[in-house]
Every structure is written in structure tokens, then in C-alpha cells.
């Protein structure tokens, strides 16, 4: 008989917190409420502006803020996609290459990875220029690449020996081995690291803008701090968070779709 799927041990959940949307709403109301109240009591708007003050800041120049957010969002998404693609290609390439070359490239990647990112980022801006989003995309891509490449590689090589031999007995090509075994069995770990990679891409884009940009949320942070507008710095930070959340939400949805089996399997155990 099929093992009955055990119900998740049920701690009682208040009726208000049923459903994902409600949980987000409650979270937002409570945390913003506490912030608003705390900041008002503390009463030092230059150090800690209230959420309502930040909202006012947004309403002063909504188009400008959205424009900046749009630029940064592009950098983040393009950088993330590019970095993730290259990380996957590199991971597959690494397992095809002869052992000694794989070892050499791993040393190279580790060396590059131990250079402080900030130093790397400032160089990229010098190389690719301050204008346009190119240098920022590259930096976000670099951050993503390094956040991913080890995990994807690890996922691809950590396949079960028995399954590998099964495919050998079918006389599969390398591409089939990746498609039918390596990639699907690595997907759970890949998705976990993609979520980390998304956050890295956000960081990368902002760091890139801090080093040289005339638009974007990072530029907004630098510019506003220079004129002492703390509320606007907060506003930029909040925008970054929202962009990051959107990316995370998209990844979580894809994860449910493609790795739902894994979520359910681990829940059942």
C-alpha cells in the first residue's frame, strides 16, 4: 500500500492568518506599525525617519523614483540571468573537462572569489565605463556567478552511483545523462542557491552603482546621503527590497512548479 501522506503536525493557526496574501498583509501592517510608532517616540527624523515620512518622500517625485528603480531592476534581472546562465554552463563544462583542467579552473575560480568583491567591482566600472547599465549588469552577474557556481557543480556531481550505472546500462549520451539524471537531481539544491544568487544580484547592482552611475537606486542612495536626505536613502533601500522580493517570489513559484516533488518528499519524511 502507498504510505498515507501524513498531515503536517497542526499547531493551531488563527483564522486571520489563513492564506499567503493575508500573512503578507498582517506582516506588513504589524512591522510598519511598530516602525512608525517607534520612530515617532524616538523622534529623530534625520537618523530614523518614519514609514509615513518615507512614503511622503516617494510622493514628492514618484516618477523619478520609479525610473531609478526600473534601471536598477533591469541591472539586477539581467545580471542575475547572465550570471546564473554562465554559472550553469561553467558547472557542466567543469564535469566534462579532464580532471587536471577541472582542478586548475577550480583554483582560478577560488582565487578570483577571494578577491574582495568591492575591489573587483570598482575595476569592472573602470573597464566597462560609468555610463549605461553595462558595468552594473556585469557586477551583478559576477556576484550571482560566484554565489551559484559551487552549488550547481556540487549538485551535478552528487548524483547517486546506482542511477549513474543504470544510465550506463542504457548506453546514454552525455547530454542525456545531464537531462535525465544530473539536472533533475540537482534542481532542489540549484533552486536554494538561486534564491541566494538573487540576493547577491541585488547587492551587486547597488555596489556597482555606488562606484559609478548617474541613475539607479544606488546612485539615489549616494546622492541623497550627500544632501543629508535620510528619508530618501531609506526610500531607495525599501525599493531594493521590493525588487529583491519580486525576484524571490518568481523563483519560489518556479520552484513549486519544477521541484514540487522534492518539497513534498521532504515534508513527508
Amino acid at each position: 500500500m502507498a504510505r498515507a501522506i501524513r498531515p503536517t503536525p497542526s499547531k493551531p493557526t488563527p483564522a486571520l492568518l489563513q492564506g499567503e496574501g493575508m500573512r503578507w498583509l498582517v506582516f506588513a501592517v504589524v512591522s510598519l506599525g511598530v516602525w512608525e510608532l517607534g520612530a515617532r517616540l524616538y523622534n529623530a527624523p534625520f537618523l530614523l525617519p518614519t514609514p509615513s515620512r518615507i512614503l511622503q518622500e516617494f510622493l514628492k517625485t514618484p516618477n523619478l523614483v520609479l525610473q531609478n528603480a526600473w534601471v536598477t531592476a533591469q541591472e539586477i534581472v539581467l545580471g542575475f540571468v547572465l550570471g546564473a546562465l554562465i554559472a550553469h554552463l561553467a558547472a557542466v563544462l567543469l564535469i566534462v573537462l579532464p580532471k587536471w583542467l577541472e582542478d586548475f579552473i577550480f583554483r582560478l575560480v577560488s582565487t578570483l572569489n577571494s578577491i574582495p568583491f568591492v575591489a573587483l567591482a570598482s575595476l569592472v566600472v573602470v573597464w566597462l565605463g560609468v555610463n549605461g547599465i553595462g558595468s552594473k549588469v556585469a557586477i551583478a552577474g559576477l556576484y550571482t556567478f560566484f554565489a551559484l557556481v559551487y552549488f550547481v557543480h556540487k549538485g551535478l556531481v552528487s548524483t547517486d552511483t546506482g542511477k549513474e550505472e543504470l544510465l550506463t546500462s542504457y548506453n546514454v549520451s552525455f547530454a542525456q545523462r545531464v537531462r535525465f539524471l544530473k539536472l533533475p537531481s540537482a534542481l532542489p539544491i540549484i533552486f536554494t542557491s538561486l534564491k541566494g544568487g538573487a540576493m547577491a544580484a541585488v547587492n551587486g547592482a547597488i555596489v556597482g552603482e555606488l562606484f559609478g552611475a548617474f541613475q539607479g537606486l544606488g546612485f539615489m542612495i549616494l546622492d541623497s546621503r550627500y544632501v543629508g536626505n535620510t528619508a530618501r536613502v531609506f526610500l531607495a533601500a525599501v525599493c531594493c527590497t521590493l525588487v529583491g522580493w519580486l525576484l524571490l517570489g518568481l523563483l519560489t513559484a518556479l520552484e513549486r512548479r519544477w521541484v514540487g516533488w522534492h518539497l513534498e518528499m521532504t515534508r513527508q519524511r
Binding site: G162, K163, E165, L166, F180, L181, S185, H262, M265
Partner: peptide, 9 residues
């Protein structure tokens, strides 16, 4: 094989 080696996905 000794183990079922089924693909969990």
C-alpha cells in the same frame, strides 16, 4: 540493482 534506483522526480 540492489536498490530500486528510481528517479524521485
Amino acid at each position: 540493482f540492489q536498490a530500486p534506483t528510481l528517479m524521485e522526480w
